[in-house]
Amino acid sequence: MNALINYTLHLADNSLILGQRNSEWCGHGPVLEQDIAITNISLDLIGQARNFYQYASSLINQRGKPLNNPASEDSLAYLRTEREFKNCLLTEQPNGDWGQTVLRQFFFSQYQYLLFQQLQNSKDEQIAAIAVKSLKEVSYHLRWSSEWVIRLGDGTEESHRRTLKAIDELWMYSGELFQPASYELLILNEGIASDLDLLKPKWEEKVKEIFSEANLPVPENVFIQTGGKEGRHTEQLGYILAELQFMQRTYPGNEW
């Protein structure tokens, strides 16, 4: 039960934190259509997060919490501390320039696409239902971000140079997506979590394919940063939570 709760929170946190990051582009996108695109992706991700948080809160409340203070999607998003968040480090990295944002989205969407394909068959019915629903949306995110990586990588000298820099910044965080956390391993054999070992080669193959079309090199032998899934984050997450949680921390129980 605890492992399932942690796993559900991990899936929720991934979507919420990247959704929050992408939403920083609202009103600042390079052109109107792309401003709308990146915020639409945010909306989908936050929607996924809500579904996972709602499920996690129902599990937490089943496990037995005081009745006057039950967990809810809001308490999970707004009242947990940095060490309690289980998102991958990749999702909390700064937006940087447009190239860095779309590359981060491409890495993540390719991962989510493969992950949700597997989770459609999860033995946990609710996780499977959320996966089926989300997969449709992720297909758009993946198509959009792949096109952008190709456009920038194979674009002008400057866009190529900037994309190379983005790879430098982000590649070290991509490996964590495929490193199972302790709670993940506990429910892997029950057929609830997905087997990340199976996803990794497929992810690498697809990245290679898009990179070769984009004239970009695939980095090798890069040290991989990990820890986010177990609550050990880069300094970035604290700033995100400070902004995300400010209203509820300052005015507890405040409603719109």
Binding site: E33, Q34, I36, A37, N40, I41, L43, E137, Y140, R143
Partner: peptide, 13 residues
């Protein structure tokens, strides 16, 4: 297609 995403989640431009 101008953009994959439009004024609401369900639409494209």
């Amino acid at each position: 297609r101008v953009s994959e995403f439009g004024s609401t989640s369900c639409k494209a431009l």
